[in-house]
Design a protein around this nucleic acid. Structure first.
Lengths: 333, 333
DNA sequence: TTGAAAGCGGTACCAA
DNA sequence: TTGGTACCGCTTTCAA
């Protein structure tokens, strides 16, 4: 089923069918109706591949994220998609699960699809890939990696600042044994977070001690990390989690170990995902505006004409400290 | 940048380049290497649109879900995608947010992309769309709607049975005022769930009373529904939620209203998403095997040859009752 | 206002 | 083992 079938049935040329389908040029009203009728009757759906191939331009944006299970990424995706749809774009997403090979495959796929722009909200970016994307003319948005150049926009979160605020807050509450629960410490942007924590704690050294553990970025990962922590003998009075998602796992393990939060142990998250307010106890965390990230990504990728953003920007986002119920004074003794 | 550029650089024909790119036929080793070198140097990435257009076949599966925010759908997606990748397929997902117009748009999009198969895990399917998909020759999998025909496989969950078990359990615990928290009662498959609940309760009538409320399928929706319930004067001792996701919202509202779960109010979910075990208290729920649904969807859509599934199957899944900590004896008085 | 035809970037068949 | 070439289904001049 193709244009020609429709054309035949409507007794016009394929060019005319194309015209009515795209509302381009002017078509006599009577023939327009004839064509539309034919389209209806044949239940014709234009082949999008042929369309983009012939048209040259692509109306889809690619987005690659590290972990769709973590609502953080989903929120960014939804914000981006909302903008995209409003502007007549589609967005196709890929999930890497923090696997470098999968990232390579996803990038190839996106390039193969000739996306109009690519948002890479991933931590496993290696320098080679960054370079490759930089070389390509494709508009790209990175999150937490790379450097901005003509076709690349970088969005960074001042994680360090956020963690400093958290550690300071905990210190003021009297905590002296703080632990950090992270994940994938082999990945640079994520290891930076661990380092930020250690640096933040170092300011109160030697009174305040620190320890770090890591597991997968998942509920179960957070739980395992907490388990490891509890059996390490370190006995933290505060656990700083790299994000809210893992913090939920930590909360569970503490609960099952009979520890009360925040009475026995304080816990903090990061991101301020919706769940952080719905779990028990509600998490003290640092807000990262996922929707803003999504909006910025879209703007940098798809705006044209007057609204076009100066590409090659570097945007820094400052997290906002949010106090809830998962933190409290350090226990005595 | 296209095949011809590569061909020129390698001093061969486009046909030969195509051959080495696809590993078809035999190409002399020396020329193969020459071509590969050219591909490398030019950083050439084949245009996937041209590929599918010329090749005729599509190696991608479409999946449409009602609400990606609800982990239930994400789990199905991930299972499907894992299978697909293993078999060399891609899957592109679309989220409707339970909006009928968005579903129509998404279906058109998938058809336009000429997907090899379509999994529609949505509740907002209307008869017209079902018919349209049935007429098309496209392999389709429905969840909870439609009927199986030659090209259509249906996966159904015996929700009724699951709710019966839940209501029976609550009844045995002495609960006499049960409420149901649902969403989008205008959609048939979802209203069926509400009806199942009412029917289940009716078996214990008139001793046991029932009431139902509905809001959005979200954390906040569950919370609002609970709020409405609490201010209705009905004073339920047990709240049966249409799914775990909304149950999380209910838990929060109860907590903020000063009600203890399960001491004052029992709460049940449905689906057994991972979060149901990580929230507090852990939810009594009914397990629905999302991974199995994903696997079945993939099999029905993409298997060929010996492993091909008899299409037009109808698969019924029986939820498994899971007791955790959110349910307990009805409070006295 | 409409039609004919030249691409878009590949694949695959037929010859060489 | 290779090259030539006819499509795949659509968009877009260019003429009529």
């Amino acid at each position: 089923m193709n244009l020609e079938d429709v054309a035949k049935r409507a007794k016009v040329s394929t060019a005319t069918v194309s015209r009515v389908l795209n509302n381009t040029n002017t078509v006599k009203n009577s023939t327009r109706i004839r064509v539309q009728k034919a389209v209806e009757e044949l239940k014709y759906h234009p082949n999008l591949h042929a369309r983009t191939l012939a048209g040259g331009k692509s109306r889809t944006i690619g987005m690659i994220v590290s972990n769709l299970e973590n609502p953080f990424f989903l929120d960014v995706f939804q914000a981006l998609e909302a903008d995209a749809h409003r502007a007549g774009y589609e967005v196709v997403a890929a999930n890497t699960g923090y696997r470098a090979e999968q990232l390579v495959a996803s990038i190839r796929l996106m390039i193969g699809r000739r996306v109009a722009g690519l948002a890479a909200i991933v931590s496993e970016m290696d320098p080679v890939l960054i370079q490759e994307l930089t070389d390509s003319k494709l508009p790209v948005v990175f999150y937490d990696v790379g450097n901005s150049t003509k076709n690349i926009t970088c969005i960074r979160v001042n994680y360090r600042r956020g963690v400093e605020k958290i550690v300071e807050y905990l210190h003021d509450l009297g905590h002296q044994r703080m632990a950090f629960v992270g994940h994938h410490s082999a990945l640079a942007p994520i290891n930076d977070r661990r380092t930020s924590f250690l640096d933040a704690v170092a300011r109160y050294s030697p009174k305040v001690k620190a320890q770090t553990v890591a597991d997968l970025d998942s509920l179960e990962g957070g739980r395992q990390a907490a388990r490891e922590l509890l059996s390490s003998g370190f006995k933290p009075t505060a656990i700083v989690c790299v994000n809210d998602f893992m913090a939920l796992g930590v909360l569970r393990e503490l609960r099952e170990a009979g520890l009360r939060v925040p009475k026995d142990v304080s816990v903090t998250g990061f991101d301020n995902i919706t769940l952080s307010e719905f779990c028990y106890p509600a998490l003290t965390t640092a807000h990262i505006p996922r929707d803003r990230i999504g909006h910025i990504a879209f703007e940098s990728l798809a705006l044209e004409g007057d609204n076009a953003q100066p590409s090659g920007r570097e945007i820094v986002i400052n997290p906002e400290f949010v106090v809830r119920d998962s933190t409290g004074p350090a226990p005595n003794g």
